[in-house]
Simulated scan of single mutants.
Amino acid sequence: MKGAVYYSLAEAERNHAFIKDLQKEAENLGICLELLTKYPAEPLDFILFRDRNPLVASELEQAGYRLFNRSTVQEIANDKLRTFELATVLGIPVVPTFRADQQLPKVPLVLKTRGGHGGSEVFLCHSQKEIAELFSRFDQQKLIAQPFIDSDAQDVRVFMLGEEVLGAVKRAGPVDSFKSNFTLGGSVEKYSLDSAQKKQVQTISRAIRSDYIGIDFLLPAEGGWLLNEIEDPVGARSLYATHDFSVAEKLLHYIKERLEV
């Protein structure tokens, strides 16, 4: 069996440790796994697609390649407005989300680009002046607006492998930030889902037919949780930090099982 893991060149350099882990586990399973940073030049049994580019993913699918995740997963996960619309249809509790060119909640509010990731292009605004400054920097049609929800900079990321909960982590941001991202200096701890939470994340993964994604939920101060984002590709650093299994091994077993059906 021959496959490839596809990254942009910049992300391949940043994720070299995970790529090495994937290639080691692939070898253990009898899979030849190469790194791709451009269009493949030969037939492959599968491509583990780790780029944020639905157009490239769709082109590869149209050329006959089997992708994990599919381009349609990318289209939803990399568009925060579409994520909100999906959650609303599925009845999942979600952070209220508006197109910034159509409606703004009261300040303080959060403005985000629809395609940002990793805590980038997320801005907490306390005044109309701050909002106007961001509108001068970004196309309003590419921004979403959300009310600021007090969560003590805490959220939960759930890692899904198909409809299986691979693991979950509770993330807490630095004291001077409202963002909880681990890569921005936050802390993480293992988190256990209750039955209702497990049902909700399985509903999401089933609806979009995902393979390997992260689903992020804010933890409001008054309790409960609210869907905030879906991450594809999702980084596994916080999962490795809190769990004692190889994400790469489980992911490649999953791929091999589905290709052998």
Rank of each mutant, 00 (worst) to 15 (best):
I144W: 08
D21S: 09
S210L: 05
Y254F: 15
A57V: 06
K256H: 04
E13T: 02
L22Y: 01
V175H: 12
L48T: 00
D152G: 13
V165Y: 03
V73Q: 13
H16L: 07
F18N: 01
F49Y: 15
T83I: 08
F138L: 09
C125S: 03
V110Q: 07
P108K: 02
A132P: 00
E163P: 00
A63L: 04
V175E: 14
N181Q: 07
R137Q: 10
I213Q: 07
A168L: 15
Y65E: 14
R171P: 05
T113G: 12
S205A: 15
L218M: 15
A100Y: 07
S238R: 07
L124W: 02
G115V: 05
G119V: 05
K142D: 08
P220M: 13
V261G: 07
K256G: 04
E257A: 11
E260A: 15
L36H: 00
S177L: 15
C32S: 15
R50I: 03
K199P: 02
E59L: 08
G115D: 15
T183A: 13
F217D: 00
F49T: 04
F178D: 15
A132V: 09
K20I: 00
E133I: 07
E27G: 10
V94K: 11
P233A: 00
K20P: 00
T88Q: 11
L143I: 07
S58F: 09
F182P: 00
S71T: 02
E25S: 10
A17Y: 06
Q146E: 13
W225L: 10
R137S: 13
S246R: 15
R209S: 13
R209E: 14
P147I: 15
D194P: 01
R66I: 11
G223A: 10
L36M: 02
K20H: 03
Y7C: 00
V94Y: 13
H243A: 07
E34I: 06
L218C: 09
L124G: 13
L33C: 11
D152I: 01
C125K: 07
A77F: 14
R50H: 06
A41D: 12
S71K: 08
E133F: 10
H126Q: 08
A241S: 01
E163F: 00
P174V: 05
G119M: 07
W225F: 04
L134I: 11
A77Y: 13
H243E: 09
N15R: 07
T97C: 14
L184P: 04
K170M: 12
G64I: 04
D51L: 15
E249P: 00
E59G: 08
V95P: 09
A87P: 12
R258G: 06
F49E: 05
A63T: 01
C125N: 02
I204Q: 04
L226N: 06
K38W: 11
A153D: 10
